[in-house]
Design a protein around this nucleic acid. Structure first.
Lengths: 150, 150
DNA sequence: TTGGTTGCAAAATGTTTGCATGACC
DNA sequence: GGTCATGCAAACATTTTGCAACCAA
């Protein structure tokens, strides 16, 4: 089957797909989904998207999980666990990393545009002798506009 | 069975045990463990401690999980999920909440004494219109003194 | 061609739930 | 005594793994 749309949308991934792993169409699909998503996605959400887009061929959960860890290992995506869910979510690692405000009621994830940690992280790192900081995670919890009205 | 040790060590919990739930010896044991722990503990770690301390009577996982959610609901303890593990950890909610630096290799959790978010959280909340902030989570990742030597 | 990748099914892990027994107030 | 909590086992959800078939380089 010839699929122009895919052939086209794969182009944009050429720059970001890690050289260290094989370029399969499953992995390209997974990375494209994360690349375009505005919020981090769980393995189940990725599975949903894959199998609604490509009804003809199935995508297995094992493939998704294995691809996600391959991307994570390569540094292309980031895995995090939000306090409101008990599953992991994944997102494309933009040069500017993201943080989220999570609604405790409807579980909506609202991206926070700026990273306030940037300025204080070096200072903070000094208070932990010998620890080499490579990253950080931050999350606000509370209630979104809709849910706080009710 | 008369157990002086328990009768004694329970005293310190009188002030913090929530009125809203029944005071059973299982819950007292669980809360006492969390109260004394310097790092957040998983359900499995609590299970270990309980069953090594009290070899005579068994503690079920279901009891631990149910007790933990009861305490969490009452606001006595806090549940969080660290990025390095895929299970939840629980800690006693001190008036001064805690953050941790987590080693990506040995998974050691090093408490960060100060909360740098305090000063910036109000400012930050303004950037998310309508969102009511009730809490936050923060975590540094990297390598601890030992592991960064290797 | 060949080693890495996939899909399937089964296993492992962490957590939740139904139900009868038992303990707290 | 009545209600709520416990323990057990079984269910559940998420993630991992073994293995044969398959595909990208």
């Amino acid at each position: 089957m010839i699929c122009k749309i895919h052939a086209h949308s794969y182009d944009e991934l050429d720059d970001i797909f890690p050289d260290s792993i094989k370029k399969t169409h499953q992995r390209l699909d997974i990375l494209r989904i994360l690349y375009h998503s505005k919020t981090p996605l769980s393995a189940a959400e990725i599975y949903e998207k894959l199998n609604s887009e490509h009804k003809d061929n199935g995508y297995a959960f094992s493939t998704i999980y294995r691809s996600l860890s391959a991307f994570e290992k390569a540094g292309t995506i980031v895995k995090t666990v939000l306090t409101t869910e008990d599953n992991a979510v994944y997102e494309y690692r933009n040069e500017t990393h993201k943080h989220y405000a999570v609604c405790l009621k409807c579980h909506k994830k609202i991206p926070i545009s700026t990273c306030p940690m940037h300025d204080i992280i070096d200072e903070l790192a000094k208070s932990i002798p010998g620890f080499k900081v490579t990253g950080h995670q931050m999350e606000l919890t509370g209630y979104c506009e809709n849910c706080s009205k009710q």
